[in-house]
Design a protein around this nucleic acid. Sequence first.
DNA 1: ATGCAGTTGCAAGTCATTTGCAACAAAAAT
DNA 2: ATTTTTGTTGCAAATGACTTGCAACTGCAT
Lengths: 139, 139
Amino acid sequence: MQDQTDRLTRALRAAGVRITRQRAVLLDVLAETEDHPDAVELHRRAEPRVPGLSLSTVYRTLSALEEQGVIQRHQFEGAPARFERAESAHHDHMIDVETGEVVEFRSDRIEELQARIATELGYEIVHHRMELYVRKRRG
Amino acid sequence: MQDQTDRLTRALRAAGVRITRQRAVLLDVLAETEDHPDAVELHRRAEPRVPGLSLSTVYRTLSALEEQGVIQRHQFEGAPARFERAESAHHDHMIDVETGEVVEFRSDRIEELQARIATELGYEIVHHRMELYVRKRRG
DNA sequence: ATGCAGTTGCAAGTCATTTGCAACAAAAAT
DNA sequence: ATTTTTGTTGCAAATGACTTGCAACTGCAT
Ligand SMILES: [Mn+2]
Ligand SMILES: [Mn+2]
Ligand SMILES: [Zn+2]
Ligand SMILES: [Zn+2]
């Protein structure tokens, strides 16, 4: 885990991205993250460890990390962007419309069908997004 | 086509939505629409027929019509919302990342799989969105 | 240790969309 | 047809989520 982080910071530095105190902390926070927090939530989690950390720095860091492929940004309906590490394999999301909770899932079958559809229409997929807005089935 | 419009305005009036000159024109513009225009584009198309039409009225009308289920709003990546009539059957979209052009498609197979996935995880789908960001295959 | 290019906090700006408000106009009621 | 009621309009100002200019700072390669 320490070397994971080390490799990452090394790669970032190599790309001309400086690992400042605020970025190191944000990377730590993201590493500990199990959910899909937004910028304000990440700031809330990081600020105690870098007093004075500004929200613009959080936004700027998130953009830099996204650009480096370290994290992914998700723009769900009617909510600020939410983030997660990019290390895990591709998956799509279900959003509980009542709680905002995010559940991940993956369907190779669907991914296949998407690719086929695009191909048949003369396109290639650059990226896609598929979100299921759901509610808990009661009964 | 005249009675189509008539039935619609009747239904809207019944719901307490007044058919003002600006709304009548916007409904006409939407009826003629073959693409997925945004609010500014709709304003551009409608204003000549209602000189002085304000953009806020366009936004307010679009919200009202969406609420009444007359139109659908799509929030594609990094762009203002785009609209289309809601009369047609459900379909999803491919967005050409180079031109912004929107292509519609539908896969019953995918819809089925989505429903199954949600069910298996204990949820029911309220609505979903699936967008393929593509580029023309050259070759 | 040093220099410079990348980074920070803060204030101000941007963009798409929403909202308060007083004048106005559909549709209802008379 | 006129009045009354209540939804709607244009305009200006506000909102929310970010983004950006700038001068004071650091990382960090040398
Ligand atoms: Mn995820
Ligand atoms: Mn469509
Ligand atoms: Zn997917
Ligand atoms: Zn669909």
